[in-house]
Computed example of a mutant assay.
Amino acid sequence: MNRLFKRVVEVISGNVRMNNDELDIYFNIPFDDDLEPNLSEITVYNLSQTTINQLKRGQKLSINAGYSDDKGLIQSGEISSVSTKWEGADRATLIKVLDSVPYNSAKTLQRSYKNNIKADAIIKDLAQALGLKVATLRLPTNKVFKKGYSIDGEIIKSIQNIAEDCGASAYISRQQAFIRPITEGDNHNFVLNSDTGLIGSPEYFEEEKNGKLVKGYKFKSLLQYRMNTASIIQLQSREVKATLRIRKGKHINNGSSFYTEAEAIM
């Protein structure tokens, strides 16, 4: 736990470099297991007008956070909007950031595919029509649509549905799109326990999804950049010892608290 001291926050966008040694920087950064872009909010107090003018819509923004000897990337996206207002004697600038790659998530399509077409071929074609670059495409079951496949609606929903039918998760994380097995993720060999930041006791849950029973835990820790969509972690507490894959959560810094909440499945 000794290394979890001295909080560090760095915000980088173009020529702008901001850090929490010089400015008060708060954030709420959600992440989850789908292709809908997540909207993060970063509030920075008392920025100069010159700096505010350099923060422009469509510009890439990234955030590193953690501690003096252990920090990492928690957000990479594009600025959606920038607004400034006075809060008493302080000037608060709210920066909204989309964790996305450039594509139109609401785009629709009307198209039919031939008999015996495979799921990966449909996904590749739909992704191209959407302008979505997929970093990883790996389907546990490459389903064959014997009677063909038709789409008449939102492309993103069809990609999501086909991926789920094939046992895969489709999501965007840090400006990259992934379609891969629901149990597959990024293993940082990270053990979360009371010594590495676990707060309180994990909460067990069960739910049914696509006809299957899903089991997992919800938990909270001191802010941990290694925890993101599809991160594989070892959760250890008095009640639990399990290897889990994170499916959603959020990173929060509100001034008094600096933490990560997550929901992970077995």
Rank of each mutant, 00 (worst) to 15 (best):
I52W: 15
D69L: 13
V11N: 08
N15F: 08
N38A: 01
D24S: 13
D70P: 02
L35Q: 02
K60G: 08
S62E: 07
S48Q: 05
V44E: 01
T51G: 08
F27Q: 01
A65C: 09
L35T: 01
N38H: 04
I25H: 12
E36H: 03
D24M: 11
I63A: 04
V9T: 14
R57K: 10
N46Y: 11
I63Y: 15
G72Q: 04
S68K: 14
V16H: 11
Q49K: 14
R17H: 13
R57V: 05
D33M: 08
N28F: 08
N64P: 03
F31A: 02
N46R: 08
Y45I: 02
S76Q: 06
N15K: 10
I63L: 15
N15G: 14
L61P: 03
S76L: 04
N46T: 01
S81H: 02
S48H: 07
Q75F: 14
I12Q: 14
S13Y: 13
D69V: 10
E10G: 08
G72R: 06
D21K: 13
L39Y: 05
V9R: 09
M18W: 14
L23A: 12
D21M: 09
I79Y: 09
S81E: 06
Y45Q: 06
R57H: 10
Y67W: 11
I79R: 03
S68N: 13
M18V: 09
D32S: 07
Y26H: 09
D34A: 02
S68D: 14
Q75R: 10
M18R: 12
P37Q: 01
K6H: 15
Q75C: 09
L35C: 04
N15I: 02
L4R: 15
T84E: 07
N19K: 07
S40G: 04
I25A: 08
K71H: 15
S13F: 12
N53M: 14
D21Q: 12
